[in-house]
Amino acid sequence: MVNESHKLSDAEIIRRVIEGDVNAFEDLLKRYEQHVLNILKKHIPHIQIEETAQEVFFRAYQGLPTVKQTGRFKQWISAVAIRACYDFWRRQYRSREIPMSDLTERHRRWLEDVISDQSDRSFHESRLQKEAFELLDWALGKLSAEDRMAFELVYLEGLSGREAADLLGWSVVNVKVRSHRCRKKIKKLISEFMAA
């Protein structure tokens, strides 16, 4: 039975779930859990990952009848995950529950060291330090929920405007304008921090 479920295509599993075989959804969950977790890990705080992962698969289950191209389920569930992240940040910004950490002298010294040592070799060989994560969180914390998602997908993840727009369900122009604006804003913020 287990082997049989592994052979089934996504479309076949979706058909079974819609026909009332709720347990078949577990196969989809196992097939895409790592993919969804990788998306969530990059976009939301660690402590929120499990709860949001549950939300993503719950939404996916409820939305199964609306999946038009069952062969592209991976793209579809990626969009569900990205939109769950966006909703998470919108809720956070609305309730103002985001802890705004600030950068310190320690971060400035670290950033100066990294920038002055511009050799690619040393950059790749060195282990990423805690300061890098704090710098990223600090910079992203300065953006709105919308800007944050556009910036992460286009600038950090390297997706095209079209790909990011498809995931977010926005227009391509909206995504491009936001990501461009955010890139400039973050550069300015870090320049100001270094100059202060």
Binding site: K42, V114, L128, A132, F133, L135, L136, A139, E152, Y155, L156, E157, G158, I186
Partner: peptide, 8 residues
Amino acid sequence: ILCRAYYE
């Protein structure tokens, strides 16, 4: 730096 921290 930012991209690497993001993927890490």
